[in-house]
Amino acid sequence: MQRVNMIMAESPGLITICLLGYLLSAECTVFLDHENANKILNRPKRYNSGKLEEFVQGNLERECMEEKCSFEEAREVFENTERTTEFWKQYVDGDQCESNPCLNGGSCKDDINSYECWCPFGFEGKNCELDVTCNIKNGRCEQFCKNSADNKVVCSCTEGYRLAENQKSCEPAVPFPCGRVSVSQTSKLTRAETVFPDVDYVNSTEAETILDNITQSTQSFNDFTRVVGGEDAKPGQFPWQVVLNGKVDAFCGGSIVNEKWIVTAAHCVETGVKITVVAGEHNIEETEHTEQKRNVIRIIPHHNYNAAINKYNHDIALLELDEPLVLNSYVTPICIADKEYTNIFLKFGSGYVSGWGRVFHKGRSALVLQYLRVPLVDRATCLRSTKFTIYNNMFCAGFHEGGRDSCQGDSGGPHVTEVEGTSFLTGIISWGEECAMKGKYGIYTKVSRYVNWIKEKTKLT
């Protein structure tokens, strides 16, 4: 034993070699072989497995989906700052455009905790909710729209109204504003409101030439003092309507412009014939205590009207009353817009006519005020429907199939267009061939041609 100890002390290297040989010859039971080890760690190889990531292109799944990435790591994937920024906006807080917040056709661009709407022409605001041009839906104005110097929408209202708090709607500024039905039992019968379409306001006024200088022999019209197929109006439903009495009662109609003036057809009036105007009328054979009678003290036909040349060209006249009318729910003026808007309103496509005229061709006159909704007829169809001249200051309205029309005794009465609950004068009943005849239409004086003249002559002093 002493000898062994001496050998170990003198030859430590020998001992180490012996131990190493023993270990190498022993069977290893701690580690699995290569094949079995792979069965336990069965993990798919990654895209760049075996390579240094710093030297390969980034992978979106590896960089940002398996674990949260930084902007720089995302930049490695896209290799483009702009594309990385677009991805980053949604990656950080989701897609803010998912709810489609942009209105009126706006395009949404996502941002971090926010979004941006790219608005089409005519709109602005956070969600493109603000109209900035009158060309689109009248700028959301209830009545009139004008573009300011910086191309912003400025709404306005006709006389007797003021802008509401929203700067879009119009509200009454006087007790009985024009064009409004205020009798409670008839307010439910107000005709369907007309909503502004998209309009090209630059070209809204037709490029028409008034044929002022045409000389033409007097034409022989049949029954051209021209509501057939209409309905009984309720008291106060058309408070701007008046009836004219002269040699015979209810020979023509008219509309209240203001307390002192009536507008009617020029062919209705004769110099030297006494005319009485009755406002607030409903049943011409009954006294309903809503009527107001006034005498006409002055007749002003349009300066281009000449019955000797043509009885229905420039067929418009103004009547001055001896005493002002007292405005109330049964006696209310009709609204008159400017030339541009009167023309736009007419193009809405349908209007209402009213009167006490004959209820059928050569038949009896109506006792109760009649009204009828009539569609506008395109000019080409209008011209083809008659052998008589249709001037540019006239328009056609009615039904091709016949059966409904204005008729004798309705002449001078109103053709009105309702705009968001307020009625505007767009025409004056003038003439036609018979009444409600198939293929024939009622012919009306186009008020847009005469609004400046009306307003100039009827100013209240």
Rank of each mutant, 00 (worst) to 15 (best):
F196A: 05
K39V: 04
G230F: 12
G229L: 12
G246A: 09
V228E: 08
D198L: 07
V326E: 13
L163M: 05
L23G: 01
T389A: 08
F395R: 01
E286S: 10
K446V: 02
L19R: 02
C170I: 01
E323Q: 14
R358T: 12
K455C: 04
E116I: 04
C117A: 02
K152M: 11
D405R: 15
V326D: 13
C335T: 01
E433T: 04
S423Y: 07
D410E: 15
T381P: 09
K126W: 08
S411N: 12
G246E: 04
P172D: 04
V257Y: 02
Y47L: 07
I256T: 02
R191V: 08
P177W: 00
L244V: 06
V181S: 13
N343M: 05
G432L: 03
P44Q: 06
S148Q: 13
E73Q: 06
C157W: 01
E259L: 03
G402W: 15
G402H: 04
K459Q: 14
E116G: 14
N100F: 08
R62N: 09
N135R: 10
Q216L: 10
N452L: 04
P44D: 11
C28N: 00
E159F: 06
E270A: 10
V242H: 00
G355P: 04
T461P: 11
R75D: 15
M6A: 14
K438S: 14
V416A: 06
T85S: 06
I7A: 13
G439Y: 08
Y161F: 07
K438R: 14
D111N: 11
A207K: 09
G94Y: 05
Q167F: 12
V30G: 15
E98G: 12
P324K: 09
T84C: 07
F348A: 14
K446C: 10
S220Y: 07
I334S: 00
L103N: 12
C268L: 01
E259P: 05
P235K: 09
K188F: 14
N203G: 11
R83A: 13
A317G: 02
K188D: 08
C382G: 02
F399P: 14
L130Q: 09
I210V: 10
P239T: 01
V228S: 09
N147K: 13
Q2F: 11
T84I: 05
E418F: 08
L14P: 07
V326W: 11
N203T: 06
I443R: 04
E76Q: 14
F71Q: 15
K457E: 13
L163W: 02
C145G: 02
A9Q: 12
R62W: 06
E320T: 01
S406A: 09
I40W: 05
N104L: 03
A9F: 13
G363Q: 07
L327T: 06
L319Q: 01
S107F: 05
K438H: 14
I214K: 12
V451F: 05
I316T: 00
C396N: 02
K51D: 09
P375C: 06
I15A: 04
S25E: 03
H303N: 10
T81Q: 10
I299W: 05
Q241H: 10
P301L: 12
K274E: 11
N213P: 07
A173S: 13
F144D: 00
E76C: 15
L14F: 11
S187R: 08
Y450K: 01
A265R: 01
C252E: 00
E82G: 15
E86Q: 15
K455I: 07
C97M: 02
P324E: 11
G413V: 14
G122W: 04
D198K: 09
D338S: 04
F360D: 14
S354A: 14
R180G: 03
K260P: 01
D198S: 11
E53L: 04
E208P: 10
Q237V: 08
I334Y: 01
F31I: 15
C407G: 04
L60M: 12
M394C: 05
N113L: 07
Q185D: 14
K387W: 07
R373P: 14
C134S: 02
G160C: 01
Q370I: 02
T158D: 02
V257K: 01
Y115A: 09
N113S: 02
R226K: 11
P301A: 08
E159V: 07
V269C: 09
F224G: 09
V331A: 09
R180S: 04
L163T: 05
S182M: 10
L52W: 07
T422M: 04
S182Y: 10
K446Q: 13
I210L: 10
T190Q: 12
G246Y: 07
C407S: 04
T386D: 13
N304T: 07
G125C: 02
T445R: 00
T194M: 10
E433I: 04
T381I: 14
P235G: 05
L24I: 05
E10C: 08
T209G: 10
K293H: 10
E171H: 06
D405T: 14
N393K: 04
W356G: 04
L327Q: 03
P197W: 04
V416P: 00
V56R: 06
Q219C: 14
T445A: 04
N295L: 06
V419C: 04
S184E: 09
Y352V: 08
T186V: 06
C335P: 02
E129A: 12
G409W: 13
G421T: 07
L20R: 01
T85Y: 03
D338M: 04
R43A: 13
E288K: 10
T84R: 14
C117N: 03
V92W: 07
K274D: 11
I15R: 03
F395G: 02
D378Q: 14
I299N: 04
E270W: 10
N38W: 10
G21W: 09
N59W: 06
N38T: 14
F388P: 14
S448I: 00
N151P: 05
E286T: 08
Q408D: 15
T287W: 10
L321W: 00
S187G: 09
V326C: 11
D212T: 11
V416D: 00
E76K: 12
E66G: 12
T85P: 15
Q241V: 05
E76I: 15
V296D: 00
A308G: 12
A308N: 11
G246P: 05
N283C: 04
V447G: 02
F424N: 01
G21A: 12
M65N: 10
D131S: 12
G357I: 14
G363W: 09
E54A: 08
G280P: 02
F345Y: 09
W261K: 00
T81L: 06
L319N: 00
A307H: 07
R43S: 15
E456L: 06
G412D: 03
N343K: 03
C119P: 03
I214W: 08
I334R: 00
T29H: 09
G229V: 05
E320K: 03
E281D: 08
V296Y: 00
E285P: 09
N42H: 08
E54F: 03
C268H: 00
W240R: 01
Q57T: 05
T426S: 02
Y450I: 00
E142H: 04
L211G: 10
Q216W: 12
R298I: 01
A233G: 09
K293V: 11
V56Y: 08
C435L: 02
K39L: 09
I344Y: 11
A266Y: 02
C117E: 03
S107V: 11
P175H: 06
A26G: 05
S49P: 10
S49M: 08
G160F: 02
K126D: 13
T264F: 01
P177T: 04
I300E: 05
E270Y: 05
I300W: 05
V183W: 10
G21V: 14
S448G: 13
T186C: 07
F345Q: 02
E35D: 08
K387F: 08
V377F: 03
Y330G: 05
C69F: 04
V56L: 04
D315C: 01
T264W: 01
Y371Q: 11
Q57L: 09
I344W: 06
K68T: 15
D410F: 06
F123V: 07
Y312K: 07
E291D: 04
I344T: 06
F388A: 06
N147G: 12
G439T: 14
I256N: 01
N213T: 07
E86H: 15
D410L: 06
Y201R: 06
C97P: 02
A317Y: 00
V273I: 04
Q167C: 05
N313G: 05
M6P: 04
E98F: 10
N343C: 03
K152T: 12
V30L: 12
V228H: 11
S169W: 05
P44L: 06
A436C: 06
F224I: 12
Y341I: 13
